[in-house]
Design a protein around this nucleic acid. Structure first.
Lengths: 210, 210
DNA sequence: TTGTCAATTGTCAGTGGCTGTCACTAGCCT
DNA sequence: AGGCTAGTGACAGCCACTGACAATTGACAA
């Protein structure tokens, strides 16, 4: 199964991710060079690029795990839940499981700080948003499947997901801007914003201030 | 007013934008080097970087104009319109004016093809989404002002804008994926997706298929 | 006009991300 | 044991981008 070769490879990869995150969160993403990451793990720069497509790729190594878990969480929602409900619960319930999966590679606190770095580094934020857009497409297909409609004919799957994603990006942004970077804070923000959806789409805000 | 110096600068800048767009749309963004752009306008590479923060910045020179126009369009909406209505109309009506403003710098057809390049170039798509996020914040403040609420207390401004933006990104993506890159096509897609908002958020899709 | 100042530009040198190539080492398989 | 090959290091090179300094040129006053 897992020969010496493969295990060594996995260890090198994990070490690179950890070293990268430690450096990114301490000196900042842009002020960290690939050479420094490679040196910290005692491999050549060339080897770093054999594991990661680029510096950016290393920054999202952990994030990738979280995304995969979110998709699985959506897939696991009981089919009687309405689309928006399923998405909301997948996010709210998913956070704990995501953290479990992640901490086998890096300490959770490091990952939380990395979120902050991503949010405050333009290049990483941009990459993050593009990645989210890709996830969006996958989730839209999932929702379509759940509801038994054709994603290329019925607009609703992509529309709910687009609306939901817009809201989640807002939540992330507000979470990153704050000081409480805990999972609990994220959960609370998420439901607060979800609850604000209805009122925000209401026709007239002035007759009934919130 | 506009001395020789300033006019010359403007001409150089416009020439750089045009050269960049022509090259980006013909050879692709990544296969175009800054040297080539500079050479096409007969300035040094260093000069290019004095006009633009980077290659990416040149790619969005036109886009920037469109964004500013959208914000103005929102500001110009009569105050009796509900927030979502104002945003929708600003986009739908805005397209024509945006095109007018843009064509003084580059031919509209070139700009349309550039949209396509942005949509299909990961690095540019990422940058585009980050830029949109910044616009989002500005629009949220505008809406808050319109409705006379505090953007840091009332969640609704940011929420409508987040939802609306999610939908607009979806529209852009679908538009870019299609073959009809006309303004008319964009307008039609926009209202189609806007109309799908209600049904998509409805609790149960199965009882009443669309 | 002409001299002076300041803005604009070109040149040069250097950093850092990223890639291709090639030889070498170390795990794997018969 | 010995050949095979994945993984690696070393080196060279491309390109985006930046800082420093010198040359040029428009602006403006004497």
């Amino acid at each position: 199964m897992s020969g010496l070769r493969e295990r060594k490879k996995q260890r090198t990869r994990d070490a690179l991710v950890r070293a990268a995150l430690v450096l990114f969160t301490s000196k900042g993403y842009e002020h960290t060079t690939v050479d420094e990451i490679a040196e910290a793990v005692e491999v050549s720069q060339r080897t770093f690029f054999r594991y990661f497509a680029g510096k950016e790729d290393a920054a999202f190594a952990v994030h990738r795990i979280a995304e995969a878990h979110f998709i699985e969480a959506v897939r696991g929602r009981p089919s009687h839940e309405a689309p928006l409900e399923a998405l909301s619960r997948a996010v709210l319930d998913g956070w704990h499981h995501i953290n479990e999966a992640v901490e086998s590679v890096v300490p959770p606190e490091l990952q939380m700080r990395m979120y902050h770095v991503i949010e405050s580094t333009p290049a990483l934020l941009a990459a993050h948003m593009r990645r989210s857009a890709e996830t969006e497409e996958a989730v839209a297909r999932l929702i379509a499947e759940r509801e038994g409609v054709d994603v290329d004919v019925d607009l609703r799957p992509r529309v709910v997901v687009a609306l939901f994603s817009g809201l989640m990006r807002l939540t992330e942004r507000r979470w990153g801007a704050g000081t409480d970077l805990s999972v609990a804070a994220m959960r609370e923000l998420t439901s607060t914003y979800l609850d604000a959806m209805g009122p925000a789409l209401a026709g007239n805000w002035r007759t009934e201030p919130q």
